[in-house]
Amino acid sequence: METISFTSQLFQYLITGLTVGSVYAMVAVGFNIIYNVTEIINFAQGEFVMLGGLIMVFFHVGMALPLVLAFPATVILVTLVGILLDRLAISPIRQPSVLTLIIATIAASILIKGIAMFIWGKDPFDLPAFSGRNPITVMGAVIQPQYFWVIGFLIVVVIALSIFFDRTIIGKAMSACADNADAAKLVGINVKQMILLSFALSAAIGAVAGVTMTPISLMEYDRGAMLAVKGFGAAILGGLGSFPGAILGGLIMGAIESFGAGLVSSGYKDAFALIVLLAVLFFKPSGILGDIEISKIKRF
């Protein structure tokens, strides 16, 4: 193997980082959708990603459905899980407090993880890359075609969501719930339904992230928690509730992780993102794009 120059090595880290970061960004967007409507942080957010990957493996590899069928089928199934999560774990709670809601989503998360282990076992699963595995080389960096799919789907998700929230009645109603649930109730918006929808939507996005990342990094039952924590880190870094913030936060988080693992220590790969998360929480909980004035009043 030829020796790779330091610059192309850095470029390689950047590309890998941005790809992983796109996954974190999608998880962060999922956090934000639910948070904006309900002020709940869904600790089971990472399980949607894990389920997305494994269900896709089932449809695409197991049942040999073509990609164009397996992908939407996976998203629909995970969306159903999101709906079940709200119906079975969140809405039955009679006196919701922050503490009970956290515990409920944690409970759901280990339950989903356990069921996934029951179905798929403990081994990681591979998924064929969408358009093969012949890497292209740019500036000495090896780029898998799947990287483009991941980044591309992040862009698709972002565009679809901005159309949804800005142009459709339902999307606007959801934003209204986010701004002021009581006022939304007064103008006749069914807040319960909006909460359900937020879980469904955020599960769907999680599924997209899972489906697109699996050909790169495989998938197994216990990935959810780490993805959730890193995705939350991305959401916080960008400013919780902010969609542009989630994208930016995700990409930065991915890049930090990739550079950290490459240049500092690969064993501590997972720790970098968490240290960033702690640093943001400790020193600037409003995030980079969060409104500083508002955060002062909210007193996180």
Binding site: I41, V98, I275, L277, L278, L281
Partner: peptide, 14 residues
């Protein structure tokens, strides 16, 4: 609330 939960969770994993 959530922030504290996430901070302690991240600390635990580190």
């Amino acid at each position: 609330g959530h922030y504290l939960a996430m901070a302690t969770l991240a600390f635990g994993i580190i």
